[in-house]
Amino acid sequence: MGEPAEHLITCHLGEILDARGMTLAELSRVAGVSVVNLSVLKNDRAKAIRFSTLTAVCLALGCTPGDLFSVRTQ
């Protein structure tokens, strides 16, 4: 069984940053994750995320993975 052609995960990083008045550069500094990697997440272009990155982002934003991501139903 192969992978689906397109995943149904949506990243809400942009909305969370906006709600906190935070920029990608600030999050990068606090979380220790590159701006490039955060930009890929924010723009929904990521195909995967390391648990260490997810942990760092969630700790820096005070959120959970469930706050950061949702699954579309199509």
Results as ranks from 00 to 15, higher is better:
residue 72 R to N: 05
residue 35 V to K: 05
residue 58 C to M: 02
residue 50 R to Q: 15
residue 49 I to P: 04
residue 19 A to R: 14
residue 72 R to H: 05
residue 63 C to D: 15
residue 54 L to S: 03
residue 34 S to D: 15
residue 60 A to Q: 14
residue 68 L to S: 00
residue 3 E to C: 07
residue 22 M to L: 13
residue 14 G to Y: 04
residue 11 C to E: 09
residue 37 N to E: 12
residue 63 C to F: 12
residue 40 V to W: 10
residue 48 A to C: 08
residue 41 L to H: 02
residue 18 D to Y: 13
residue 58 C to G: 08
residue 43 N to V: 13
residue 55 T to C: 15
residue 21 G to S: 02
residue 49 I to Y: 06
residue 69 F to C: 12
residue 57 V to L: 07
residue 8 L to V: 10
residue 56 A to R: 05
residue 29 R to D: 12
residue 1 M to I: 09
residue 51 F to W: 04
residue 32 G to C: 15
residue 15 E to C: 07
residue 17 L to G: 05
residue 14 G to E: 09
residue 18 D to F: 15
residue 50 R to V: 09
residue 56 A to E: 01
residue 62 G to L: 02
residue 22 M to D: 04
residue 58 C to P: 09
residue 43 N to E: 04
residue 4 P to S: 10
residue 44 D to P: 06
residue 41 L to C: 00
residue 42 K to D: 01
residue 1 M to E: 12
residue 17 L to H: 04
residue 1 M to Q: 13
residue 17 L to W: 12
residue 46 A to K: 06
residue 16 I to P: 07
residue 23 T to H: 05
residue 9 I to C: 10
residue 45 R to Q: 11
residue 22 M to A: 05
residue 9 I to K: 07
residue 22 M to F: 06
residue 20 R to T: 10
residue 54 L to A: 06
residue 58 C to L: 03
residue 12 H to S: 07
residue 4 P to R: 14
residue 70 S to T: 03
residue 47 K to G: 03
residue 22 M to N: 04
residue 35 V to Y: 15
residue 61 L to K: 09
residue 54 L to R: 03
residue 72 R to M: 00
residue 55 T to H: 15
residue 2 G to D: 10
residue 30 V to G: 10
residue 41 L to R: 03
residue 20 R to A: 06
residue 20 R to Y: 00
residue 32 G to H: 10
residue 66 G to N: 10
residue 54 L to C: 11
residue 71 V to H: 05
residue 14 G to H: 07
residue 33 V to T: 06
residue 29 R to T: 13
residue 25 A to T: 06
residue 53 T to E: 15
residue 35 V to D: 02
residue 28 S to R: 11
residue 67 D to E: 05
residue 44 D to G: 01
residue 63 C to S: 13
residue 51 F to P: 01
residue 25 A to Q: 06
residue 1 M to F: 11
residue 51 F to K: 04
residue 64 T to M: 13
residue 53 T to D: 14
residue 54 L to V: 02
residue 4 P to M: 15
residue 26 E to M: 09
residue 25 A to P: 08
residue 43 N to K: 13
residue 52 S to H: 02
residue 73 T to G: 02
residue 61 L to W: 06
residue 58 C to K: 13
residue 7 H to S: 12
residue 62 G to C: 00
residue 17 L to M: 02
residue 41 L to W: 01
